[in-house]
Design a protein around this nucleic acid. Structure first.
Lengths: 357, 357
DNA sequence: CTTAGCACTCAGGAAGAGTGAGTGCTAATG
DNA sequence: CATTAGCACTCACTCTTCCTGAGTGCTAAG
């Protein structure tokens, strides 16, 4: 059933107010809003109907209304006003991102930290590889009498290396032979297909350098496996405590603990089939502890076939408009940055104006 | 002034009890301890004296006593009983550490997470390089028509690499020349000594590959600089909230926020001149917010000239004996592990017995 | 030196009263 | 018919008061 324009306006007002004050919203408060031209009685009637329709709730008979999960959902999907980032905001975001950074996952972490600051809520970051990797090319460098550097180029253009110390001396030509063998027979093979039999075959043809083979292939397996893992971190948890809904220490503790766990396991799965920004309102969360906690997550591509995810956790009453706006902007900036890694290109298309309030 | 044996015994009992219960300790409670053979009146007198000596405090006239900072200090330095880890504890520690891990800083983080679990307190981890690094050796590998892998071997035997894409094609002999030049003139130079003049000199002698020089040297500088930075992380913050002293949300928030900051900046400085395990009792902390929060930190060497630090943050009333024991054990295990990286050797010397309680 | 006894203090919980924001309903109004 | 004014009612919260009991310091006796 479709809501009347007036009902939508009332619902939006209630949600907005509740987001600001964290207290049940009464009919009078709504009346006092700038462009509400109805009396409190009318609003009361509308609110009563919105309550029976399930968009609002009443903590007890003589209190104002608060939005229900359905109310928030509707608000997020249809009602909320776009929040435009202020110039200051975009500037500080850009400055922060502009710094040269080397390791991709550290970069994502850093941005998550910024997001946490910007939203004054805890933030979660995750960097993960998607799709399985293989080795595209092997190089062996003789670094000293008895140490060899193995350099692997992976299918995503990433390069990794390992220093291997040998029990005995090695020479250039042995290494040349071995790397030729490896490049011929061990490229483009996913880690789970590296069998002991294959390993033996390689060893037989590797001549003097045969003792290197198991070390290298172990390293290969480890590298390919490990790079599939996700790297999750949480920042600014303490900010939760500043919010009235988490004045209850027990609740805060439960939520924070489950952010830690959730972050470390479930999170990647949740975003599996999504792209862009997703809002999970309270009870839509799987975990029991997070039933009145909302999550806004955004997924984006970063170079080398990796994906990044940054999210914010807060009370169901969080400022969805602001949070999603900021998060999207961060994600967009990061994507662009990684698209041209040597020459950071920052989004200018956004044309930020003074933000409405 | 030296304390009598009886006073020491009373002080120890009070601290022990307070650590367990988090509530002011009355004379009666002390009397009821197994080997206290005095009446409550006697204990009262002793406690009164300990109070005037500054080792105990009284929250208000009609309450029991709690240890003062000086009391804790004395307790930590002289009074507390050694805590022996139980077999179970050492087992779970060893299991956790045994897994193969690749990146050192991740390893330290993982252990910190374990420490947090084991102590049920927030833990801080830091991994940092000490002393300045230089490049020991350069290798350049032609990876494709127009991409080159630069492999640097650093003075600590660590190897790093970077994939460089060229605007034009390169050939083997150009790279051979360039790497010879680099190895001849740019080794063992700390990052701050890489001057533009030098860079130009190298470029002049580099022939066709000159355009690679700035990219490589930038990478060198970045690598050497970055590896000096410290990598700090905090885990299990939420555990603070389980403790009675942090039922006050505001306090908890202040402390947690300042753990975040402290962790990220001050921490390495604090441990500068220390080795092994250090206990910082409440007011000995620099930060105002942490005046009634204690920190136990331990510093240890991990391979490659890196140092690791793991610490625990908790109320002044934390179980110092247990925490220091566990922390030391973790640190010891890690040090040994890194001493023989390929063949994890776990401490057996500890000969853990059933722990006293 | 140790202990029993006693008067005194004071934090913290329980019970009760008052306050006011907010509601739903009804009747009047444009 | 939609809107609004008016009114009685509800109920969370706060403030105050009272009471209890754990703990103390001091004194006098063992």
């Amino acid at each position: 059933m479709e809501l009347s324009e007036r009902k939508k306006k009332v619902l939006r007002s209630v949600v907005d107010l509740y987001i600001r004050t964290a207290e049940p919203v009464g009919s009078k408060a709504v009346t006092e809003l700038p462009d509400m031209k109805y009396s409190s009685a009318t609003i009361r009637n509308e609110m009563a109907e919105l309550t029976t329709m399930g968009y609002l709730e009443q903590p007890h008979t003589s209190a104002g209304r608060i939005p229900s999960a359905a109310g928030y959902r509707l608000y997020v999907d249809e009602l909320m006003m776009d929040y435009r980032l202020s110039i200051d905001e975009t500037k500080s975001i850009n400055n922060a991102i502009e710094e040269k950074m080397q390791r991709v996952d550290k970069m994502v972490e850093k941005v998550a930290r910024l997001v946490s600051q910007a939203t004054d809520l805890p933030a979660i970051s995750a960097a993960s590889r998607c799709g399985s990797l293989t080795v595209k090319r092997y190089d062996l460098i003789l670094a000293a009498k008895s140490s060899v550097i193995a350099v692997l180029m992976l299918s995503n253009e990433q390069v990794v290396n390992k220093l291997i110390k040998l029990p005995l001396a090695a020479n250039e030509s042995d290494l040349k032979l071995l790397s030729a063998v490896l490049n011929a027979s061990m490229t483009d093979i996913p880690p789970e297909h590296i069998t002991p039999e294959q390993m033996e075959k390689v060893m037989r043809s590797a001549g003097n350098a045969a003792s290197l083979v198991p070390v290298i292939l172990d390293f290969v397996q480890e590298t390919l496996r490990q790079s599939e893992s996700t790297n999750v971190a949480v920042f600014g948890q303490a900010r939760l405590l500043g919010l009235p809904e988490y004045r209850d220490v027990d609740k805060a503790q439960r939520v924070m603990a489950s952010i830690d766990e959730e972050a470390l396991s479930n999170l990647p799965a949740v975003m599996e089939n999504t792209n862009g920004t997703k809002v999970i309102v309270g009870p839509e969360n799987v975990s029991e502890e997070l039933k009145d906690t909302s999550v806004v997550m955004t997924k984006f591509d970063i170079g080398d076939g990796m994906q990044g995810m940054i999210g914010v956790v807060g009370p169901t009453r969080m400022d969805y408009a602001k949070v999603t706006a900021r998060l999207s902007y961060f994600a967009e900036s990061l994507s662009k940055l990684f698209a041209k890694p040597e020459q950071p290109q920052l989004p200018e298309s956004a044309e930020p104006e003074e933000h409405k309030e």
